[in-house]
């Protein structure tokens, strides 16, 4: 199958190879959680909810955490993450819901990526729980989950070094493609998922399960990083607009609601935990 039309240069869904799907972010979607966010990349739709920081007390929890190889110490906060796919998220392409290899792995990936940016040493003897649920899967769920988790953590007012954003890129028809959808993802080509700390320009996540020549890989990874930065800009722009409580929202696709609690990392704002 041709994933990039040789005559028009468009992908199957009408994007160019270096274009992302439509982004949409919304925070505060789960009222009981300390922070929550809904994040969409095209038809991939993910919800994240954050509880904490709260006290670690239950000994059973501690032992369960230790089984997963995490250390509970008195100097740092404990970050836990659970990734799930809703049964209805894939339509016919049903996957096992919980506890399978894939979701365990993604849970781990998200947790490690978020841990890299959360200032855990500010919150000793506490735990932060991140729950991510895929509502609709159309490729790139891993990236969407990380982006949603970032928004939710920010929404919960948890101090972070920088925002972590993630995006994937693939390589099909000898062309690097940004932000693969399910159709392109299932073509069997390489799929590089990158997560970066956007302002610090540091890579916190890099995954690929295929072979690629070095120079091609660099191109594909470069493209994915560009994607991450674009997402970071999007998140920052939309939050800044809302944060300053500007009345007009220029882009109708931007739906970050007004119940935003700004965290300390936000540009120019030092009003952590404060409700606007």
């Amino acid at each position: 199958m041709e994933y990039v039309d040789p005559l028009t240069g468009f992908r199957v869904d009408g994007r160019r190879p270096n274009e992302m799907r439509q982004l949409k972010g919304e925070v505060g979607v789960v009222a009981r959680a300390d922070g929550s966010a809904l994040f969409e990349m095209g038809n991939t739709r993910v919800i994240a909810a954050v509880y904490g920081p709260r006290e670690v007390n239950s000994p059973t929890l501690i032992s369960a955490v230790q089984n997963k190889g995490q250390q509970v110490n008195s100097k740092e906060a404990l970050v836990r993450c659970e990734y799930r796919m809703a049964e209805f998220s894939t339509g016919d392409r049903r996957r096992k819901p919980k506890g399978d290899r894939r979701s365990t792995e993604i849970s781990l990936v998200i947790r490690q990526t978020m841990e890299a940016s959360i200032l855990t040493d500010l919150m000793p003897r506490s735990q932060i729980d991140i729950f991510v649920q895929v509502l609709q899967a159309d490729g790139g769920t891993r990236s969407a989950c990380i982006n949603a988790a970032t928004l939710a953590l920010a929404n919960a007012g948890i101090p972070m070094r920088d925002i972590v954003t993630s995006c994937s890129a693939g390589y099909l028809c000898s062309t690097p493609l940004l932000d693969l959808n399910y159709l392109e993802d299932s073509a069997g080509g390489p799929d590089v998922t990158v997560g970066i700390l956007a302002k610090m320009d540091k890579v916190t996540l890099l995954q690929m399960d295929a072979k690629l020549p070095m120079d091609t890989f660099e191109n594909v990874m470069g493209l994915a990083i560009e994607g991450c930065k674009a997402i970071a800009t999007y998140i920052r722009e939309s939050r800044k607009i809302n944060g300053l409580n500007m009345l007009k929202i220029a882009d109708p696709s931007v739906h970050v609601t007004h119940r935003v609690r700004l965290a300390g990392w936000m540009d120019g704002f030092q009003c952590s935990g404060q409700e606007i």
Partner: peptide
């Protein structure tokens, strides 16, 4: 963004984005 629905073999709803 538009949504296209197609049927393939089995009755299955395929939703694809279609960017204009």
């Amino acid at each position: 963004s538009f949504v296209k629905k197609t049927k393939q073999g089995r009755i299955q709803k395929v939703v694809r984005e279609h960017y204009l």
